[in-house]
């Protein structure tokens, strides 16, 4: 499902993965001092437009991924209402004996929306980035030691298999007459075979990698080089414009 979007030939997919990641981290940093609800709302809207317009992701799929996150975001609101740092003055209504203040609702929405902004930027990255390119870019641009890069790549390859194995181990237990139980003992029954299998596989994979001549040197030729290109320049421009627009809009209209 993800792969289909990650391999699309759209603008966001062509931007250097490390650059996109830097963008995500920047956004998180920028959002830290913001406590009004409108700025994150505005930024969130723009981000969704970006993902759909420049990444070719369908709005339904995006919604599907964000939906469970809404619950998480909502928790910020109600906790802010019930346990605020200081209660606001504009009381809207009371739930039982507890007054609900407009200021607290605003802060709650702001914090919830902030979580959603983080999530949307994460999705912007995840949905438009091919894992192999990501790994190569980390090695080539961020100087990640190849051992770690290719090691992670190897593990990534096995992910679908782990999920399948978890399923198979469950069935095996049922075939052998071990009912479903709860608790740490049961967790251990799944965890141990899964981990033991993973460790054995990892050892064999590492040995196979070395037997193919992989020594983790940094100076290796690359068949696929991730170069800086004009898409990266465009992305930087776009990103800065986005920040400026959000800043101006916020200063002009949102925070009075």
């Amino acid at each position: 499902m993800l792969e289909q979007y990650q391999k699309k030939n759209r603008f966001l997919q062509k931007v250097n993965p490390s650059l996109k990641l830097a963008g995500v981290l920047m956004i998180i940093a920028v959002m830290v001092p913001v406590f009004d609800p409108w700025t994150p709302l505005f930024l969130f809207g723009l981000t969704v437009l970006l993902i759909i317009g420049l990444g070719g992701v369908s709005i339904r799929f995006l919604g599907l991924l964000l939906l469970p996150f809404l619950v998480f975001a909502f928790s910020f609101l109600w906790i802010q209402v019930v346990f605020p740092d200081e209660r606001g003055e504009t009381i809207l209504f009371s739930i039982g004996s507890m007054p609900v203040a407009l200021e607290n609702v605003y802060t709650g929405i702001s914090l919830g929306m902030r979580a959603l902004v983080f999530a949307s930027w994460s999705l912007l990255f995840v949905l438009t980035t091919d894992p192999t390119r990501f790994m190569l870019s980390l090695i080539q641009q961020c100087k990640l030691p190849p051992r770690f890069g290719y090691g992670m790549m190897a593990a990534y390859r096995f992910l679908p298999m782990f999920r399948e194995e978890l399923q198979q181990i469950r069935t095996a237990h049922r075939i052998r007459g071990l009912g479903e139980k709860r608790g740490l003992k049961q967790f251990k029954r799944y965890f141990i075979p899964l981990m033991a299998g993973a460790i054995r596989k990892a050892e064999r994979t590492a040995i196979a990698m070395e037997s193919k001549g992989f020594d983790g040197r940094r100076s290796r030729p690359f068949y696929q080089r991730i170069h800086w290109n004009r898409y990266d320049a465009c992305f930087i421009g776009l990103f800065l414009t986005l920040l400026v627009v959000v800043y101006i809009v916020r200063a002009q209209w949102l925070v009075s």
């Binding site: 051992r147 090691g151 190897a154 593990a155 992910l159 596989k201 990892a202 590492a206 983790g216």
Partner: peptide, 24 residues
Amino acid sequence: NLREIVVMAFISAVFGVLYLIWIF
């Protein structure tokens, strides 16, 4: 060494999958 790194990556990957369930 490479063996330790790959084993670490696999263990973490299994946790990565478990994390996804846990996150939910």
